[in-house]
Amino acid sequence: MKRLGLFMFAFAVSGLVAGAANTAFAAGKLTLYCSPQIEWCQLMVKEFEKATGIKVAMTRKSSGETFAQIKAERRNPKGDVWWGGTGDPHLQAAEEGLTQEYKSPRLGELQDWARRQAEQSGYKTVGIYAGALGAGYNSELLAKHKLTAPKCWADLTKPAFKGHVQMANPNSSGTAYTTLATIIQVFGEEKGFEFMKALHKNINQYTKSGSAPIKASARGETTVGIVFQHDAVTQAVKGFPIKIVSPCEGTGYEIGSVSIIKGGRNPESAKKWVDFALDPKIQTMAAQAKAYQVPSNAKATPPPQAPDLSQIKLIDYDFKKYGSSAERRRLLKKWDDDVSTLPR
């Protein structure tokens, strides 16, 4: 019996000791909500800790999850800074007053599109990278099913592609919402929804996460995935037979952003993080983490594999209009009612 008691005691004590060892004293602290892939998050944290001595506690969650979390915690914010992830939820957070205005001294070095987005948000968020929307296809599967390679959005609605296309659900994924908004800006609202209805017949699954379609395509679970082009590049670099499509009608793009959370506990560290994230040297390192977006600092060197934005037909994406909560809710409801309920 004594042995049992001793054992239980040792069990609990070993846990407590391990816990106490975790809490170290440090120069400063920062709680980071990180939305891109984990390698990139870890690289950034490592470099930031090395450069500033500030200890970073990081959670990786998708941009939708992070937005939900910040909103849930708004009366008692736990995070300090939110880095990465598509710009829409960042703009939404700015609109709802969840994030805080900050003008980094590096603003002047940024590309036009990044500066414009910062202005539109009242300097509550700032762009760190951009990536164009597009599609990727698995060339082996394409050949197996004797399909011709798609070049335009319209190609994806051809009956031959029935059951071959995958995209995320715009209700759960920022990527897919960008797709919906892009289609509407390319074709106009009425024709855009006609397009979505035609596309719906070819979709084999609406995934929850934005980059899931291209991962499924890489493993041969679907032929085509509608995703951001840099996500397709990542799969191609990993060695999967993925080819990238820049739609001929023109396409939209996302601006990955960084925002300081209002009411966070370490605002000074958060500002340092934003300056750090806009540093051209740091932005150039993204390729090490297999991230192939175009950096926002004009002095940074884009990774050689990154889709060249000057070669892609980009539309003049209206971030203000399509990033607003009201428009977003209206379009999603319309998509829910008119498109998702149709038979396939």
């Binding site: 998708s62 999850e65 937005f67 939900a68 849930a72 715009p170 209700n171 759960s172 920022g174 929850k208």
Partner: peptide, 11 residues
């Protein structure tokens, strides 16, 4: 799960 974490965020 997706009602909470998705972009719809509807508690």
């Amino acid at each position: 799960f997706f009602a909470i974490v998705g972009a719809q965020n509807d508690q």
